[in-house]
């Protein structure tokens, strides 16, 4: 079980290193979006900065995750079907997408600071919340990409299905990330919300492991 996951993960990472298609594609997407933001806003005020940052994370995630899932052709899926189980496959995909998304989030955080000004007061606190947020986003959208891969017009469907599902988590993230921007929270409020987000991540993982086998058989 464990070995299969590592092998599948290695295959995805190796493909990435060889083709360098998703990585540079998404990287270009990140860079050009933030550059356009810079051209239109230059140095936005703190709340706008925060809101824009999370919206950009959302769109990056939709693009990055969609690419990683939809690149699998029918024939290849059949091959995976014969060598691995659905649970191993989905866990490998979840881990791979978390890695990609963590990378993209940190790059966009740096670019945001570089181009749009630096309103951060507690950098490491904000960076920690960004890590948590990118894990949340990538988990939810991996599951949705698996669902969308079964339908037509996959990219637009992912947005339609994903945005309502992710809104609560995104609201929570925007709320707690204000801690990094200098807002003072009540004693336990911040840790409560962090635990809630962590719990939601666990929930999404469990749902993915339970539900993916039903999408798998075709």
């Amino acid at each position: 079980m464990y070995k299969h996951i590592v092998t599948l993960l290695k295959k995805d990472l190796l493909l990435e290193l060889r083709q360098q298609y998703t990585f540079y594609g998404v990287l270009l997407y990140v860079a050009s979006t933030i550059f356009v933001l810079y051209l239109s806003l230059e140095q936005p005020e703190t709340n706008v900065w925060n809101g824009l940052f999370w919206m950009i994370q959302l769109f990056i995630c939709v693009n990055a995750v969609a690419k990683s899932f939809l690149q699998e052709t029918k024939g290849r899926m059949l091959y995976f079907y014969s060598i691995a189980g659905p649970v191993q496959f989905i866990i490998a995909k979840l881990v791979y997408n978390i890695i990609i998304m963590l990378l993209m989030s940190s790059i966009s955080l740096l670019l945001f600071q570089l181009l749009l000004g630096n309103p951060l007061i507690h950098f490491w606190q904000f960076a920690g919340i960004v890590c948590l947020g990118s894990i949340s986003l990538s988990l939810v959208f991996t599951m949705l990409a698996a669902i969308a891969a079964k339908a037509q017009q996959q990219a637009s469907l992912m947005a339609i299905m994903g945005f309502p599902v992710i809104i609560p988590q995104l609201l929570l993230l925007m709320r707690i990330s204000k801690a990094g921007l200098g807002e003072i929270f009540k004693e336990s409020a911040l840790s409560d919300m962090v635990w809630l987000l962590t719990g939601l991540n666990g929930l999404v993982m469990i749902m993915a492991v339970i539900l993916f086998p039903f999408l798998w058989k075709d």
Binding site: I147, K150, V165, I167, R175, L196, M207, F214
Partner: peptide, 25 residues
């Protein structure tokens, strides 16, 4: 089948949005 999977997934994700988060904000 795909509809059922999304229905279950979305409903489970909806529960915290309706029952937990309103208590925190």
């Amino acid at each position: 089948r795909v509809g059922a999977v999304y229905n279950i997934f979305a409903f489970v994700m909806l529960l915290p949005a309706l029952w937990i988060i309103p208590r925190m904000m």
